Amino acid sequence: MAELLTWLDDYPDDQVDPNAVASIRQSIDWVIKRLPAERQDRLASGDPSPAALKTVTGLFVDLLWWLDTCEDEEVDSHVAVKLQESSAAYVDDLSDEQRRRLLEVLDELAATEQHDGRRYELRFFPFAMGLVDDEPDAEEPPVREWVRPEARTAGAAAAG
């Protein structure tokens, strides 16, 4: 995931808005800072615990959701597609066991997700990445746009 953001930094400003990249970085950092210190350490070491794996998976889905729905002024569509294809190639290179575990984590995340748009993205991700052949039965939201994690949390708190 950090690699995708680093690639975005390498593009000229007319193809990738640095402010848009800074915004997605802030959202990712916001999520990570809310993790217990042990989970942050496991993420940094590249050896995520099962709970940290859920966080990384969710952030990966969020990043690709953002790339899929951001405006061309934020990230040129050709750049976004190139990064999405690179991500799909990464997922394609996973072992069968890693793919199985990724699908399990996505199911677990979707089952507990309160935000309708993100729940849809979690269910759509396996199809979009070629992990499954069938599109999900989940109804696509009327407006498909990325929502910052801070706003999803605030919206859930306001609804509850």
Rank of each mutant, 00 (worst) to 15 (best):
R101W: 05
A37F: 04
D76C: 09
W65M: 09
R100C: 09
A138G: 05
D92F: 09
D133Y: 03
F60L: 14
A128N: 07
D96W: 12
H115S: 15
L64T: 08
A128P: 02
A20Y: 05
E121V: 08
Y120F: 15
L122I: 01
L106M: 11
L106S: 06
N19G: 15
G58M: 14
S95G: 15
A138P: 00
P136I: 13
R25I: 04
L122P: 02
S87Y: 13
S23P: 00
S23L: 03
Q84F: 10
E85V: 13
P48M: 04
E73Q: 14
Q98V: 00
L59Q: 11
S27M: 10
E71A: 15
E113Q: 09
W66P: 05
A20D: 07
G58S: 07
T112H: 09
E113H: 05
A111P: 00
S77G: 02
L43D: 10
E38H: 06
F124G: 03
L102Q: 13
S86N: 12
R119Y: 04
E113S: 06
P136Q: 06
W66G: 00
D137N: 08
G130K: 09
S45E: 10
A51T: 03
D107F: 01
A128C: 00
T57Q: 07
S95P: 14
L131M: 12
D92P: 08
H115V: 04
S95H: 07
L103M: 09
Y90L: 12
R99Q: 15
T69Q: 01
A37M: 13
E74N: 02
A88T: 10
Y90V: 06
Q26I: 00
P36H: 03
E104Y: 08
G58V: 10
T69C: 03
E104M: 00
S95N: 08
K54P: 03
D68K: 14
P48G: 06
E104G: 05
D29C: 03
A89R: 13
D41H: 06
L53W: 06
H115C: 12
E108H: 10
D76P: 13
L94A: 06
E38I: 11
E71V: 13
C70S: 15
E113C: 07
K54Q: 15
E74H: 06
R42W: 01
L131T: 08
Q114Y: 08
Q40E: 09
A80V: 05
W65V: 12
R100L: 12
K33P: 02
D76H: 10
R99H: 12
N19D: 07
Q98C: 01
P48Y: 15
Q98D: 08
A138E: 14
V31P: 02
F127Y: 15
G46F: 11
R100Q: 01
R118A: 07
F127S: 08
D134C: 07
V31D: 07
I32W: 06
Y120W: 13
E139V: 14
F127N: 01
I28R: 02
A22P: 00
A88P: 00
M129L: 08
A89F: 09
N19M: 14
W65E: 07
E108W: 10
S77D: 15
D47S: 15
A52L: 03
D76E: 11
E121Y: 04
R34I: 05
E74I: 03
S95K: 02
F125L: 11
R119E: 10
Q114F: 04
A111K: 14
S23K: 06
T69G: 02
D92V: 02
R118V: 06
L43C: 01
P36E: 13
D76K: 05
L64H: 15
L63R: 10
D72K: 06
K82D: 11
E140Q: 14
W66K: 02
